[in-house]
Design a protein around this nucleic acid. Structure first.
Length: 798
RNA sequence: GCCCGCUUGGCGGAACAGGUAGACGCACGGGACUUAAAAUCCCGAGGCUGUAUGCCGUGCCGGUUCGAGUCCGGCAGCGGGCACCA
């Protein structure tokens, strides 16, 4: 709610500034929650989803969000996902989609694939059955094709928070290094490794491969000990806890690698639990002196540790490696022709040599992996392909789209209901016309959310995902407001999708969101009741210093302040607040005090404070209505208190505008409150008072539109406030003609003097030096130096 | 472990660009109005003491500067992200 309120403030304010604002609302409607509800309560996911949407829509309406409801859609509408299916086919043609085997967490009881967060201590969250690792054929979006670009374009995202930019950069994780081929004794094939430290090649004392490396699998067939180790590694993969603390272990495969450049002793090849198949080539060379993991491993298996980098200033004769690897800068030693070079210089030299010898080359590797989108679930967009015994995997032709998600499904058995839905499954192969089976996997719901912003530009368009003219006009999104939880995946996928859609000719755009703002969560105190059950805030009441239940007055333990969630039952129903205080109060409260990027703690006092201010605003205008037109302010310039108020008015316009630009709603609210304080203290009447009140109402409008509109009409306006332009600042009224400046003696404030604005240095200096308090503080000592910053400060040094 | 961020009154937080720390609000205390309460209005309020034109004070230690909440170095605590990433 808070982020939508913020968005609405921006929308209303920008409209007042004369912009054409697209402020839509739609529903990310596919996904697990609906499917879970279906299994728990027996409701159809579609019905459940629509009921939820209706409820939320009603809430948005009461909040007075200025949304364009004519553009509303839900991603589970076939009118929406048909375009997603079409784009999938286009991306398939352009090789941006492919199929490969990958590991999944399989729940054997629920017969379903589990997301990582559904695996709790190695067991399925619902069934409690031990989770198996299975290999499945899955669909992938080739996001890595854009890895370099997605990374370098981050620099251009100037209106994104740095935090999110770093998180994305780390996620993509580009590292430069080399691929090196190590010949294996007695075999024709070699072992290819990726390393960022090719310069440490002479320090290699072993090779290590991932448990699921093809070579490991091959050797495990004839080696039971190795097979057992491999199986164990694959099993422990699910629990990160264990992985984190697991010691570095490995089993010798019996294979021996030759060093690619040198005739040093052969290197044993281990299968090791700390090498990942998904990263690099799934194989490394171990250089114990330059990598902590390799060192731990070497110590455990008694492998040689040869220092190859000498820290600056260290004695080459005495330098040895103890329990800590040396990863810093330094000079190469024990490394043949690299000896004496600095690390940074050695890297290009060794790569050059490897290339000459034909055993390696420069390589860039990314941490980013391709995006697996297959989900073995019902409530999602069907992936438009069929499986044919003759032709294999065949895309559904465009003209046969949409592949509709059938509605008549049952959840009385475990597993994906699509797998046993005969009418859906049976189809003919578009290739050979023979019998075929439909794909029963559906898309990851991140797919829908990767392009909905573009659909909003022309939500009824039927010829394609969106109308070219519309997206060219509206996109990129000027201001996106969302939670930090989307900092990586959703935002990165959207950036990928925008590029992919451009590659398919739908757009001419790389970046979907020009401005991003991540708002903080709304939190609330939690309450633990007598039986250890969490209690809702409305079941609890203050009593003295503590809390008791409303019924029965049992003592209640206040818990931590946490993100509002159903499980902790610390949510507040917005409808109740709106019924009691009105939407404007709720809106104001969510915008006040807390900086928008930080968490906001929901408190009754906070709501009360906002409510009081609303009432005060009302009285402020109401009580002054008869003073507005009584006395003619006359032709003359406002003077005295009037001038003072007028300056405050213009400073406020200026300040509020600046703060809104930065989305600092809390500061804008503070400035507005200062203006009301100033109006309250002003006892004049006439045009300046009118200007002040009208400005106040206009400035308040984006935040409290209902009240503001009402006040506007009380002030005698026929036209809607919503159609009134944002006020302009008159720079002449931004500054006062006198300024108070502090006078410091030796950096400590001793006096304050009032001077006409723009008083020159010499005058300011002599007035300051003549000040009584200054004279006292300097105790008659002559000033050694006097610093004057005009209109700001005077500092006397004695 | 690595990366990022944060740390200011009782509380949420202000402080343009190194120039009067604590705006605005919450909670609190005192007073006015009222038979009373609520609402409203007025006043007070960082700490300390000697009540002053006083001293101390922006997590801790040090530095740069005429001047540091702000810049630099180190440390601690809290929060977030990533994680055997070669």
């Amino acid at each position: 709610m808070r982020n939508y309120t913020m968005g609405d403030v921006v929308a209303r304010w920008r409209r007042a500034q004369g912009y054409n604002v697209l402020h839509p609302m739609g529903w990310d409607a596919f996904g697990l929650p609906a499917e879970n509800a279906a299994m728990q309560k027996g409701v159809h996911p579609g019905r459940w989803t629509h009921a939820n949407i209706d409820e939320m829509r009603a809430q948005f309406r009461t909040m007075g969000l200025s949304l364009d409801w004519s553009r509303e859609f839900a991603t589970c509408d076939v009118d929406y996902y048909v375009h997603e299916q079409a784009m999938f086919l286009e991306m398939l043609e352009r090789d941006l989609v492919y199929r490969k085997e990958s590991w999944v967490n399989w729940d054997p009881v629920d017969r379903t694939v589990l997301a990582n967060e559904q695996v709790i201590e190695g067991r399925g969250w619902r069934s409690g059955a031990p989770v198996e690792r299975r290999k499945l054929e899955q669909w992938f979006f080739r996001i890595t094709a854009f890895a370099d670009e997605l990374l370098s374009a981050i620099d251009g995202l100037e209106r994104w928070p740095d935090k999110v930019r770093t998180m994305q950069a780390n996620w993509i994780g580009r590292s430069e290094g080399a691929r090196v081929r190590f010949p294996i004794r007695g075999r024709d094939d070699g072992l290819v490794v990726f390393t960022t430290r090719p310069d440490t090649l002479w320090g290699a004392s072993f090779m290590a491969i991932a448990p699921d490396h093809p070579l490991a699998q091959e050797r495990a067939k004839d080696d039971p000990r190795l097979a057992a180790f491999v199986a164990e590694c694959l099993r422990s993969g699910t629990s990160q806890e264990e992985m984190d603390k697991a010691e570095k272990r490995g089993v010798d495969t019996g294979l021996r690698c030759r060093h690619p450049l040198d005739a040093t002793p052969d290197l044993p090849v281990y299968v090791a639990n700390f090498v990942l198949m998904d990263y690099g080539t799934g194989a490394i060379f171990g250089c114990p002196s330059g990598d902590q993991r390799d060192l731990d491993f070497a110590r455990k298996y008694d492998l040689p540790v040869l220092p190859v980098v000498l820290p600056p200033g260290a004695d080459p004769a005495a330098f040895t490696i103890g329990d800590e690897a040396y990863t810093g800068e330094g000079t190469l030693i024990n490394s043949g022709f690299l000896d004496g070079l600095a690390v940074a210089d050695a890297k290009p030299r060794i790569i050059e040599r490897l290339e000459e010898a034909g055993v390696g080359e420069r390589q860039v590797t990314f941490r980013l992996r391709d995006w697996g989108v297959s989900r073995q679930r019902y409530w999602g967009c069907p992936i438009p392909v069929v499986h044919c015994a003759q032709c294999g995997i065949v895309p559904v032709p465009r003209e046969q789209l949409p592949v509709r998600l059938p509605e008549d499904v049952r959840f009385d058995e475990p597993g994906n209901p699509l797998d046993r839905h005969e009418a859906f499954l049976r189809t003919t192969c578009p290739g050979c016309g023979g019998e075929a089976r439909r794909e029963t996997d559906t898309f990851d719901t991140f797919t829908e959310s990767s392009w909905y912003f573009a659909r909003f530009c022309s939500p009824q368009y039927e010829e394609g995902p969106f109308e070219r003219r519309a997206v060219d006009y509206w996109l990129p999104v000027d201001q996106y407001i969302g939670g930090v939880e989307h900092a990586v995946l959703h935002l990165l996928y959207s950036r990928f999708f925008t590029r992919a859609m451009s590659a398919c000719g739908h757009l001419d755009l790389a970046e979907p969101f020009a401005g991003l703002f991540t708002q903080g969560m709304v939190t609330h105190l939690t309450f633990e009741g007598p039986n250890g059950r969490w209690l809702q805030p409305d079941e609890v009441e203050r009593e003295g210093e503590g809390w008791v239940t409303v019924d029965g007055r049992h003592p209640v333990q206040p818990g931590r302040v946490e993100k509002m969630s159903k499980s902790k039952r610390n949510t507040v129903d917005p409808t109740t607040i709106i019924e009691g205080y009105g939407a404007d109060t709720a809106r104001l409260f969510m915008l006040s005090d807390s900086p928008p990027e930080r968490d906001l703690e929901w408190t009754d006092q906070g709501i009360d404070g906002a409510w009081r201010y609303l009432n005060r605003l009302w009285r402020l205008v109401d009580e002054r209505l008869d003073r507005l037109d009584g006395r003619d302010g006359g032709a003359g310039e406002p003077a005295g208190a009037d001038a003072e108020l007028k300056r405050t008015v213009h400073r406020t316009i200026d300040g509020v505008t600046r703060e809104l630009e930065k989305l600092h709603f809390n500061k804008a609210v503070a400035l507005i409150r200062e203006l009301s304080n100033a109006i309250e203290a002003h006892d004049g009447s006439g045009p300046v008072l009118r200007e002040a009140l009208e400005t106040l109402v206009v400035l308040v409008n984006p935040m409290m539109p209902h009240l503001a509109e009402e006040l506007w009409s009380k002030l005698g306006h026929e036209a809607m406030l919503a159609a009134t332009p944002w006020p302009a600042v008159d720079p002449a009224w931004l500054v006062a003609d006198t300024v108070r400046l502090a006078v410091q003696v030796n950096g400590k404030r001793r006096a304050e003097i009032e001077l006409p604005r723009g008083t020159d240095e010499a005058t300011a200096r002599s007035i300051a030096l003549a000040d009584e308090a200054v004279l006292k503080a300097t105790a008659g000592k002559p000033p050694r130096r006097v610093i004057v910053v005009p209109d700001r400060i005077v500092n006397v040094v004695v």
